[in-house]
Simulated assay, not measured.
Amino acid sequence: MNAFLPIIFGLGYTLGPITIGKALGYISIESAWLVLGLVAFISTIFMCMLEKYDENQKKKKKNFHRNRLNVKFHVLLKLIAVFLSLK
C-alpha cells in the first residue's frame, strides 16, 4: 500500500497535463476549468459519503463486539449459577 499511492499520484501528475492539453484542442480553457471543478466537486461528495459509510461500519462492528461480549458474560454467569446450584 505504501508504494501504491505514490504510483497513483505520479500517474495523475504525468497524465493530467497531457490529457488537458489534448482536451484544450477541442474545448475552451473556461470549459476545461468548469469540467475540472465539477470533477473535483463530485469527488469531494463521494469522499464524504465514503467517510460516513466507514464511520457507520465501525459503529456496527463495535456494537457487534460489545453485544458478543455481553452474551459471553451472561453465559458465563449462567454456567456459574448452574455449577453453584449443583453443590
Rank of each mutant, 00 (worst) to 15 (best):
N2R: 12
N2F: 11
F4K: 12
F4I: 09
F4Q: 10
L5W: 11
L5I: 14
P6T: 01
P6W: 02
P6N: 01
P6V: 05
P6A: 02
I8W: 07
I8P: 01
F9W: 00
G10C: 04
G10P: 04
G10F: 04
L11R: 01
L11D: 00
G12I: 15
Y13A: 13
Y13V: 10
Y13K: 11
T14V: 08
L15A: 06
L15K: 03
P17A: 00
P17S: 02
I18A: 09
I18Q: 03
I18V: 12
I18T: 07
T19H: 01
I20V: 11
G21C: 03
K22E: 08
G25D: 06
G25Y: 01
G25I: 00
Y26I: 07
I27R: 00
I27N: 00
I27F: 05
S28C: 13
I29V: 13
E30I: 10
E30P: 01
E30H: 05
S31Y: 04
S31R: 09
A32Q: 07
W33P: 01
W33I: 12
W33E: 09
L34C: 06
V35W: 14
V35H: 13
L36D: 08
L36H: 07
L36I: 15
L36N: 06
G37D: 02
G37N: 09
G37W: 02
L38R: 05
L38W: 08
A40S: 13
F41W: 07
I42E: 02
S43G: 11
S43D: 15
T44G: 10
T44M: 10
I45C: 01
I45Q: 04
F46I: 04
F46L: 01
M47T: 11
C48T: 13
M49W: 03
M49T: 03
L50F: 07
L50T: 11
L50K: 12
L50C: 06
L50A: 13
L50M: 11
K52H: 02
K52G: 00
Y53I: 11
D54P: 00
N56E: 14
N56H: 12
Q57T: 12
Q57S: 08
Q57W: 11
Q57V: 14
K59N: 05
K59S: 04
K60V: 14
K62F: 11
K62H: 09
N63D: 14
N63Y: 10
F64V: 06
F64H: 15
F64G: 05
R66E: 13
N67F: 11
N67Q: 15
R68M: 09
R68K: 12
N70T: 10
N70S: 03
N70C: 08
N70G: 02
V71H: 07
V71R: 12
V71C: 05
F73G: 00
F73H: 12
H74A: 15
H74Q: 15
V75E: 14
V75C: 02
V75K: 07
V75T: 05
V75N: 04
L76F: 11
L76C: 02
L77P: 00
L77Q: 02
K78V: 15
L79K: 13
I80E: 12
I80F: 08
A81L: 05
A81N: 08
A81V: 00
V82K: 13
V82R: 10
V82D: 15
F83S: 15
L84V: 10
S85L: 01
L86D: 06
L86S: 12
K87H: 05
